[in-house]
Design a protein around this nucleic acid. Sequence first.
DNA 1: CGGCCCGCCTGACAAATGTCATCGCGAAGC
DNA 2: GCTTCGCGATGACATTTGTCAGGCGGGCCG
Lengths: 190, 190
Amino acid sequence: MIRGALASLLSLEPDIEVVGEAATGDEAVAVAAVTRPDVALLDIEMPGKDGITAAGEICREVPECHVMILTTFARPGYLRRAMEAGASAFLVKDSPARELAAAIRRVLSGERVIDPGLAAAALSAGPNPLSPREREVLSAAVDGSTINDIAARLHLSEGTVRNYLSSAIQKTSARNRIEAVQKAQDQGWL
Amino acid sequence: MIRGALASLLSLEPDIEVVGEAATGDEAVAVAAVTRPDVALLDIEMPGKDGITAAGEICREVPECHVMILTTFARPGYLRRAMEAGASAFLVKDSPARELAAAIRRVLSGERVIDPGLAAAALSAGPNPLSPREREVLSAAVDGSTINDIAARLHLSEGTVRNYLSSAIQKTSARNRIEAVQKAQDQGWL
DNA sequence: CGGCCCGCCTGACAAATGTCATCGCGAAGC
DNA sequence: GCTTCGCGATGACATTTGTCAGGCGGGCCG
């Protein structure tokens, strides 16, 4: 519904034409490859491939396309990863709707559009401190799995999983895995 | 942004006029009390007062107003509580945008609009099995607090908190508090 | 009025989780 | 070729968490 509503609204702008829509990340990449638009506007949380990896693929396969990220959550790590993937803009959904068309025009003219406060937060927070393995284990813990489940799923020993969780807990300065998961998600580290 | 976009879109319909917008639950109640609209369209997850209690208050204070809930999550418990609060419609955001105006017209003509599949799920799932105390404790556990934190915050003994959590875990047929919290939230029981 | 029942609270035990010290192994540097 | 360094893995210990078997105390029926 949201996507459709924004598309309708953007179509009303005289200088903007909506050439395609997609519900998933993979679909977005496929549609962009065919329609070769000037701008691709992506959400991050989507079924299937997430918006950031989709952004990377679109940048690679359709180099003339400016990729913009529009997301609900202003997480520093999201911004960082979006930029590394080659995005030209990073907008959060709580800015007024009028801004969207304006941002698209600015991106088309070659500018990069980023909320200054969020940029500062992303830089001051520093890069993701979690090692790949720690991220993997922490991600496997989000759904409330027990240590044994995680160990089985990742083909690790029980104790190993504990250590990774423990170090993730310390790096996030949390008191247990639940807080660690939440803080990591807040930062966009997963 | 979403609210603004939907408002713009609805304003384009010849027979619909948007008379007010609000960012929080309390604001929504206040605006409705002043503008006395035919229809109030509410989200559930909002800062401040949540949409369901706001719906109840609007129904009480502005009886001629039809309250509609538009939410991201199709949770049975949400639907149940919305209906108990007096809502006339329950829509999820993944239906197409065109449906929204149609649903508003149907509500105005006195119909109640509910997704049939969701209604079935809400009825077959039965009512919320958690006692008030269990809900309270489980809600206090969502942010990863330790048992001691919860006990202190709720002025209970440590062991008591454990028992409530334990029984909540069994009632949700989960394996630990994390799964219990997730399942309860899925059902809209918190 | 008395007993019964049920929701709420407390204490002891078992299992899981979190912490620490240590080891193995491959990559980077000399 | 060797050393050094750091990530990944393992095992033993303290703490937290989950389970269970009871204790009040207030409402409902006989």
